[in-house]
Write a protein that binds this DNA or RNA. Sequence first.
DNA 1: TTTAAGTAACTTACCAGTCAGTTATTTATG
DNA 2: CATAAATAACTGACTGGTAAGTTACTTAAA
Lengths: 227, 227
Amino acid sequence: MAAPRRKEIKEAPETKGRGPKWRRRSDERPDEILDAALDEFVEKGFDQARVEDVAKRAGLSKAGVYLYFDAKEDILRALIEREIAPIARRVRALAEAGRDNPMSTLTGIIGAFMTVLENPRVAAVPRLVLSIAGRFPEIGEYYRENVVEHGLSAFASLHRAGVEQGLFRDVDSAMAARAVIGPVLVHVLWTHVLGGPPGGMSAVERAKTQIDLLLNGLAAPDLREAS
Amino acid sequence: MAAPRRKEIKEAPETKGRGPKWRRRSDERPDEILDAALDEFVEKGFDQARVEDVAKRAGLSKAGVYLYFDAKEDILRALIEREIAPIARRVRALAEAGRDNPMSTLTGIIGAFMTVLENPRVAAVPRLVLSIAGRFPEIGEYYRENVVEHGLSAFASLHRAGVEQGLFRDVDSAMAARAVIGPVLVHVLWTHVLGGPPGGMSAVERAKTQIDLLLNGLAAPDLREAS
DNA sequence: TTTAAGTAACTTACCAGTCAGTTATTTATG
DNA sequence: CATAAATAACTGACTGGTAAGTTACTTAAA
């Protein structure tokens, strides 16, 4: 916990003569606080994290934090909103790409999920959401609507396209989506939450195996039912 | 680790006339407290649950609780241990049964998981574990060793048996296990944590669809790769 | 009469949130 | 340019409420 150096922005006004009237010294404070909060929340959980520690990590005093956020809860809310936006955007992008080539998009999705969630800081957000969703239902709903449901519908359209091209079987989209993200989720929980050993496989190998299993099924080839 | 000493004295004085010298009035107190604690923890989460409320629910005073448990944390520990034992036992039983008939055992496992986890009180335990595993790593490890790893190895032997009988493909057992429990887990989180709508399907239908997908895969039949 | 079982009231500690006052930076003025 | 005025940014110290854990005492069973 090295004392974070205060940012020293001595930068002169951009336009010498007629600059903007008000140039705040720290427009980036809110983001710095959110960064610090994410670290603290990940380390200790929302309840056990102290606002004072968040403040210290961000390089200001507790009272300073309350200049930018009205309550601890609001820090959490803002944090989750900030972290979720890019995910929603990415999901959307994947959905767009999916129309043309469902199969490679699917493998792309699984691969991306796995590698992105390898990063503990990324994996931490869904964990945080899960752990506080009971107490702040709106946060859970927000996450559901903006990430999960978004993702689901994106996947559904991808699946639909694949069915039309004769690539995928016409099963229930929601169930298929669960078959896609379920194993990834289990892996995340296993490694990041329960502290299990990562196992021998690399992320790429795991992704490959999972896709194979997802597409071709567990049943021996000669036993598969046509559907 | 030091679980609060459960009073091992079995109630029933077998002999009518002359009972044992010491008949405690409440051998069942610890269990009553744990029942109450589960309710409170499920409702509010570990941190927000007050020991006094647990006590009230169990029908005694807060100080009374501290006669049986040294700390709030110990209540949690004991609770999880108590709830986990039967699961481990069930997992073992399923594994035994699995040797003979891997295919029906597999469908049995999925069905059992889904229906059992329909009960919020049951679903609550893994949720609790997930939410506090960061702060009490031993609890996470305990859960991992006694439930997840147990279950994994049980599944692995089931899978092996199936492979030998030519029923299953010889993929990585751990990955196959994830493919089995992942979707169930997603469903639990979806309904119990994020408050998503349950969707049209019944538990039985869902189980059926999931098994079909797991065994036969998502790919259209004529595209499947032999493996 | 002994002792396990139990309680009300207390102590202790913590921490979210506030407030009165300080410092730094910008603009206004002569 | 100096310097005063204005105000945004910030802090140390405090408050109030909450809840874990303790203690000194009471009750009731054997």
